[in-house]
Amino acid sequence: MKRTLFIIKLIFILLILALAIFPVILSSHSWPVVSRDYLYENALSDTGAVNTVSSIYLGYRAMDTLGETLVLLVSITGTMGILINLGRENEEEEAVSFSLAPEKRATNAQRTHLLEVVASKLGPVVLLFGFYVMLYGHISPGGGFQGGVIVASAIVFLALGTETQTKLTNTNVLGRIESLSFLVLIIAATSGVFFESGFFGNPIKSGSSLSANFIILLNIIIGLKVGTSIAVMCIAMMGGRRGH
């Protein structure tokens, strides 16, 4: 009986939603060209970025990107909070640090020599590539978020591959970079309010020969913010930092 009711409900829900979204998805209205044409004409002169996607998300619609950064910040803080509470139960157990010498590691640390060798060699290359994607976001596919994620994976590689803890895999240092870049991002966003270019306007438009200067700046800040915060989260998940 319960089972039948469940199936009837499921069919009803699926049917209604399918009927509601089917016409929307299959709409025959031709796709609007007005934004595309405008961007084709003006994006380069407005923002200085060749990549029109990045001229939208860091130029015309930068507020969305700020909101996205806030979602990332909150969800990472929340995830860390939820998972760190978990560690509190078994306080006496030594945290698994991947930077400990092999004999000191807990047995559940899944690390082999193969992993160490590959990860430590791959780490720097990936790090370089991450910065490339981040810095060239205005002229090629890429940008702060994408570059940041690659940087984060490079940091995870380095953390997995090196015996000694370097500055780059130290969560305190990473946390400092993260918080500072967030502060700079907020200041960069709000400074426009006081320089007549408006909220998220370009406060450094004049005074530089580089036309896409603001987009490059935002790409770097966002890349650092995203990269360090995701790296901190991954390292915390691997047990690199003890709970409070």
């Binding site: 806030l70 946390g175 918080s179 502060l183 907020i186 309010v193 006081f194 408006g198």
Partner: peptide, 28 residues
Amino acid sequence: MSIESLFLSPVYLPMLGAALILVTKHFF
């Protein structure tokens, strides 16, 4: 002060406050 900077203040000032707390959390 323009009117924009006044009515946008509930958007950017809390974010600034949040950033300040995060910075002090890591540095002090």
